[in-house]
Amino acid sequence: MAERRKPMQAQDKLAFLLALVPYLMDRDRVSVAEAAEHFGVDQEQLRDAVRLIAVSGIPGETNAYQPGDLFDIAWDDFEENDQIVLTHQVAIDDSPRFSAREAAALIAGLQYLTALPENADRDAIGSLMAKLARGASAAPSQLAVARSETDETLATIRDAVIAGVQLEFDYLSSRGERERRRVDPLRIESVDQDWYLRGWDHLRTAIRTFRLDRIDDLVATEEAITYRPGDVKLPETLFTGTPEDQLVTVEVSASAIPLIEDYIPEGAVREERDGIIRTSVRVAHFHGLKRLVAGLSGVLTVLDPPEARQVVAGWARAGVERYL
């Protein structure tokens, strides 16, 4: 015969009850045996605690307990099947809750995070999404985050990170040059709508950053990575300069400086006048200015050199002509 556990002291019983209530709230249904095992108590002690919860609550405005002021359980399930199902909750209902729209937005964000390689264990994220749905003031809208063109690339990189193997791919640089690269994947980062892979490039024997939409013919090899995240120090900034970079003088709104901080060389002069800052940015190629200017339309102006202005102006004219 199993040894019966000693009765709990009053202080221990209070702590047990305070832990049991949120435990039951987080579960739609749980057996007495499972809950008793979770808390390390006798099953009869667990049943006594559930019966006590069912006569607990918060009095209403009249300071008298009404039926809606008490917890309630599915008694038939409890007495006949040893299953615990809370059918009415109190106290927690008076706490601030996310609206259905807020919960839906958070759930969409969590779905987006499941695409990140560092979130390979997605069970915890799935559990959090379920809790958000249950805890909202109303049922969130059913939604799903649409797949992007980089989803398959992200999935391959995620698998390579987990397996600790090298990647091979064709990469189109900002200069329009295509090369086959072999890389130890270290980190995935996003800036606005673009995704970047940071890793040790065996061709360049250095840390390099690759934009995912410029990667083609990506394959995960069977060769183990040479460098792991703890073996090399990744630069704090996503974009790092090289001696071949070209400097471009620009004027940009002071409020937009944080958006181009990674492009500004260390020690670059910044002249401010009437909320506009004149400074320099480094680019691998003048054609790389197109995306920068497009993202800061009306906020950033290219001043010098003339070749850079011509590239941006020609790109802008080509865009206008498409609508004429």
Rank of each mutant, 00 (worst) to 15 (best):
L154E: 01
D151N: 02
L203Y: 06
Y171T: 06
L167C: 05
R182P: 10
V165L: 15
W195K: 07
V161E: 08
L167K: 01
Q166M: 07
V145I: 03
T156M: 10
F169H: 04
E152I: 14
L143H: 02
S148I: 07
W195Q: 05
A144C: 04
A146W: 02
E189K: 15
Q142W: 05
A206F: 01
V183C: 04
Q166V: 06
L197G: 04
V145L: 01
Q193F: 12
R204E: 07
V191H: 14
G164F: 02
D159K: 06
E168T: 11
V191K: 14
Y171Q: 06
R158Y: 07
L197N: 04
L186M: 08
R178G: 09
Q166D: 04
Y171L: 13
T153D: 02
Y171K: 11
V165C: 14
H202P: 02
E179G: 12
R198Q: 00
T205A: 13
H202Y: 01
R147Q: 13
L154Q: 00
D192L: 15
E152S: 10
P185A: 12
F169D: 00
T150Q: 12
S173I: 07
V145Y: 03
I157H: 04
A144T: 01
Q193W: 12
E179L: 10
R158E: 03
R158N: 08
S173W: 08
I162G: 03
R175H: 15
T156N: 11
I188L: 15
L154Y: 01
G164V: 06
P185F: 15
R198N: 00
R158A: 08
S141G: 09
S174E: 12
S174K: 14
Y196P: 03
L172S: 15
L203P: 01
F169T: 01
Q166F: 06
L154C: 01
E168A: 09
A206L: 01
L172G: 13
V161R: 01
D184P: 05
S173K: 11
V183L: 00
G199Y: 00
H202Q: 03
R178C: 13
L197M: 08
D201C: 01
E189F: 11
R187A: 09
A160M: 08
E168F: 03
V161H: 03
Q166N: 03
A163K: 07
Q166S: 08
L203F: 05
E149P: 10
L186D: 05
E189S: 11
E149R: 14
D184M: 03
L143V: 02
E149S: 10
Y196Q: 00
A144D: 06
F169L: 01
R178D: 13
E179M: 14
L197A: 07
D184G: 09
H202N: 05
R181C: 07
E168Q: 12
L203V: 09
P185M: 09
E149M: 11
R158Q: 12
A206S: 03
S190T: 13
V145K: 01
E149L: 09
I162S: 06
R187T: 06
H202L: 04
I188C: 08
R198K: 02
A206I: 00
V161F: 03
I188A: 10
R204N: 08
L154M: 00
Q166I: 10
T205L: 11
S148E: 11
S148A: 08
E152L: 14
D159W: 05
R181M: 05
Y171R: 11
T153G: 02
D184L: 06
